[in-house]
């Protein structure tokens, strides 16, 4: 009994360790590394206005993942020596950024104005370093150094949301300044446009897609040819070892088809006059008729006055 418990405990321990490992990997996968600094404006003269009707420097954060991201308790700072300068407060529903969406933080030095107002300002005409730290205050999630040359109403932005090279934008041509919206504005699905242009008749699609479908099933087919060969070899070896027969005899026996095996089993069944074991227990269930006042005769009868 003690041995049984010991082995059971060992088994449980192994399962627990594997589960913990799996969960820790999962936690890592869902960390806030997907949070990116996406666009920054230092001197805001004619650009976005905050909820108090005023213009300030702003920092746009972008959730580059395809799942909502909760950013409360991360830190935003402009000081490498003080990574926990501005903690994003808990308890504000707006700190949950939907997938592939943005939030704007105002660098106005007035944190009392709300969650999205930082307790520092950005310095015009100087290099500004901005960092975002995770809740531990140690893990740097993202950082950027804004060049001192950035003029009024210019922004420093990633060319592609969340991952592109940083560039100066001045709202001329396609260098849009885009507070709280995508840095790359698309009005069409590029993939579909490309297919419509490059492959108007669908030949390339048919060729590529059939190639992939065939490859996938061909790989599966070859794998199973291999697996069945390995399986047969193992079965032959086991039979050879257990029955002491030659390889040729084993090969002949293994070639039996399902139909042949079924025929042999049927013949044995007939010959031995064997039957399945039956329990010989007869169960009689009571038949219940469910009662309902709708079908009850008593309610349909006239009652005698008392």
């Amino acid at each position: 009994m003690a041995t049984f418990h010991c082995s059971e405990m060992k088994k449980s321990l192994v399962i627990l360790i594997i589960t913990l490992f799996a969960f820790s990997a999962n936690v890592f996968a869902q960390s806030r590394s997907g949070l990116k600094i996406n666009e920054v404006m230092v001197i805001n003269e004619n650009n976005a206005i905050d909820d108090f009707g005023q213009r300030h420097a702003w920092i746009e954060l972008f959730n580059s993942t395809h799942a909502p991201l909760e950013i409360s308790s991360v830190y935003i700072t402009d000081d490498k020596n003080n990574p926990i300068k501005y903690p994003v407060p808990l308890g504000d529903v707006n700190t949950r950024i939907p997938k592939r969406q943005h939030v704007i933080f105002w660098a106005d030095g007035c944190p009392s104005r709300g969650t999205f107002h930082l307790n520092f300002t950005l310095k015009p005409g100087q290099e500004n370093w901005i960092g975002v730290y995770d809740a531990d205050g140690i893990t740097l999630i993202d950082e950027v150094t804004i060049p001192a040359t950035l003029c009024a109403d210019q922004s420093y932005a990633r060319s592609i949301d969340g991952k592109g090279e940083w560039e100066i934008r001045n709202d001329v041509g396609d260098k849009y300044i885009t507070p709280s919206s995508n840095n790359v504005i698309r009005d069409v699905n590029n993939k579909i446009e490309t297919f419509a242009k490059q492959d108007p008749h669908g030949f390339s699609m048919a060729l590529m897609a059939m190639g992939v479908v065939f490859s996938a099933l061909l790989v599966l087919c070859l794998s199973f040819l291999l697996i069945s060969k390995i399986g047969s070899a193992v079965a032959r070896r086991n039979k050879r070892e257990s029955q002491g027969v030659t390889a040729e005899e084993v090969k002949g026996n293994l070639a039996d088809s399902g139909e042949e095996i079924a025929a042999i089993v049927m013949a044995l069944h007939e010959h031995l006059d064997a039957h399945d074991q039956e329990s010989t227990i007869l169960t009689i269930n009571k038949v219940r008729r469910s009662y309902s006042p709708w079908s009850s005769k008593i309610y349909g009868m006239r009652r005698l006055p008392k």
Binding site: G202, A206, M210, V213, L218, L220, C221, L225
Partner: peptide, 15 residues
């Protein structure tokens, strides 16, 4: 397993 390829070929209906 080679019957898998028939399943692949019939997908030409899609394309």
């Amino acid at each position: 397993p080679k019957l898998m390829l028939i399943g692949a070929a019939a997908q030409f209906g899609i394309f």
